[in-house]
Design a protein around this nucleic acid. Structure first.
Lengths: 233, 233
DNA sequence: CGGCCGTTTGAGCTCTGTCAAACTCTGTGG
DNA sequence: CCACAGAGTTTGACAGAGCTCAAACGGCCG
C-alpha cells in the first residue's frame, strides 16, 4: 500500500502522449526513458522554488501544478496552472537562469524530470522536437501578452469572469457543470491580480446574477454566455 | 537623393550582427541573404497589422518599432519596443496564426523580411539556430511574466518609474542623460497600462521631486537611484 | 488664420484595496 | 467527545488611487 503512494504507475511514467515527444526516433525515446525520473508529489509539495538551480524540466503526467512568482510583500502572482500533458520549468532552463517561479502541487501529481542534457541532446538531434518546443514557448508567450493587455485594461470584475471562463476551458467540469479544480479565494485573487476580498464580493455578485453557483470552493457554471458578456470578450 | 530614402544601405542590409545568425554555415548565410528583403520604413508606417497573415519575420537593422495589441475600445497596449538587432513577428509565425499585434515605426527604420520557409529551413538544418530562437522566445516570455506580476501588483506610480528605467536601459541616452527615444504621453500610458492624464500628472510629480527633467517629449534622468526607489525594484 | 493633435490642469466620482471583526470548518490534543 | 487553534471565508466601513469628463492651452501644418 505504501509503495503505491510513492511509485508512479507505468502509465504515469509514460511520456508518449506528449506532443513534443511525438516525432522522436526509437533511439531518442529510449534515451528519454532512460534519463527521466518520475515521482509522485503530494498536494502542497514544492517541485522547485524561485531562485533555485534547475537540473531539467518536468513533464506532468497527472495532477495539477500551480506556477507562481513572488512579488511585492511576498504576494504571489500565479503565472499558470499546468496539468497533465504539459511541461514546466523549461523557460529558466533554456535561458540558463535560476528559476524565477515556484511550482507547487495543487492536486496530487506525478512529474517526470528530464535532465538538461537530454533536452540539449534532443534539440541538437531532432529538428521536429525543436520546432515543437518553439511552438510551445510561443503559445505561452501569446497567452502572456494577451493577459498583459487584459490586466492593464480591464476591470477586476471583467478579469475575474475571464479567469473563470479560462478555468472552465482548461480544466474539465463534472457532469454538473462544476469545476473540478479546487482553488482558494486567495488563489483566484492571485490569478486575477486583486485582493481576496474583492474576489469574494464579485463571486457573490456573480452568484446573485445567476451566472454561477457556489458551494464552498466548488464553482458551478449556470450562464456561460452571461459570464462571457461580463468578461467583455 | 530619392533613392537613398528608399533603398537601405549595404550595412543596413547586413544581418551578420544578429545573434541568432551567428552560427550559420556559409551556405545558410547565402540562402538567408538570397531570401531576405530589406526595406526602409518611414516613421508612422505600419509593418504588419493585427489579424493579417504573416509571410515571414523581420530583422530590425535600424530604427525603433512599436509592437502593440489593440484592446478594449481600441486602446492600444504596447507589448514592446524593438530596436536594431531584434526580430519581430516571429511569434505568430511560429504558431502559424494570424498576427495578434500591430507593428508601427516610431523612428525611421530598416527591416529585413525573412520568409517563413527560410525560418523552417534554418530550424530544420541548424540546431544552434533553433536553440538561439528558443532562447530569444524564452527571454521574451520571462519579461512578459515579470511584467504581469508588476502590472498586477504595483501602483501606476511604481510602474511608470519602472518603465522609465526600462527605457533608459534599452535605449541609449545622449551625453546629457536624456532619452533619445521620443514617445508621446499616450504611448507611455499604453506601456504602463493607465490613462494619459495619470502619466502626465506623475511625470510632473517626478519632475518636482527632482528625479527627472522634462522638455517636451525629452526626458532627462537626474536621480536614477531615487527613481529606482520609487519603482520599488 | 484655422484646425488638429498632443499636453496640461481641475473636479468629481467610482472602483478597489485595506483594515477589522465575525464566522465556518477542519484537524488536533486533552 | 469537547475545546481550541488555525486557516480560509465573509461582511462592513472607509479611504484613496486613479479614471473620466471637461476645458483650456501650445505647437505645427496646410
Amino acid at each position: 500500500m505504501r509503495s503505491t503512494l510513492n511509485r508512479p504507475t507505468p502509465e504515469e511514467m509514460d511520456l508518449s502522449g506528449f506532443r513534443i515527444f511525438k516525432h522522436l526516433t526509437e533511439d531518442e525515446v529510449n534515451r528519454l526513458n532512460y534519463d527521466k525520473t518520475c515521482s509522485v508529489y503530494k498536494k502542497g509539495s514544492v517541485i522547485y522554488r524561485e531562485g533555485s538551480r534547475l537540473t531539467g524540466f518536468y513533464c506532468i503526467t497527472k495532477g495539477i501544478v500551480k506556477v507562481y512568482k513572488t512579488g511585492i510583500d511576498g504576494k504571489e502572482q500565479i503565472i499558470r496552472f499546468a496539468k497533465k500533458g504539459e511541461i514546466i520549468a523549461y523557460r529558466s532552463l533554456v535561458s540558463n537562469e535560476l528559476a524565477c517561479t515556484t511550482a507547487k502541487v495543487i492536486d496530487e501529481a506525478v512529474l517526470c524530470h528530464v535532465p538538461y542534457q537530454t533536452l540539449l541532446y534532443l534539440v541538437d538531434n531532432n529538428s521536429k522536437f525543436s520546432l515543437h518546443m518553439l511552438q510551445i514557448v510561443c503559445k505561452e508567450l501569446k497567452e502572456a501578452n494577451d493577459y498583459i493587455t487584459d490586466i492593464a485594461q480591464k476591470t477586476v470584475r471583467e478579469r475575474l469572469a475571464e479567469v473563470l471562463i479560462l478555468l472552465k476551458s482548461n480544466f474539465e467540469l463534472d457532469e454538473n457543470q462544476t469545476l473540478q479544480i479546487s482553488l482558494t479565494r486567495e488563489e483566484l485573487a492571485n490569478m486575477v491580480g486583486t485582493a481576496t476580498e474583492s474576489v469574494i464580493r464579485l463571486l457573490s455578485e456573480f452568484k446573485q446574477d445567476k451566472l454561477i453557483e457556489l458551494q464552498g470552493r466548488k464553482i458551478k457554471f449556470l450562464d456561460l454566455q452571461g459570464l462571457t458578456k461580463v468578461a467583455n470578450l
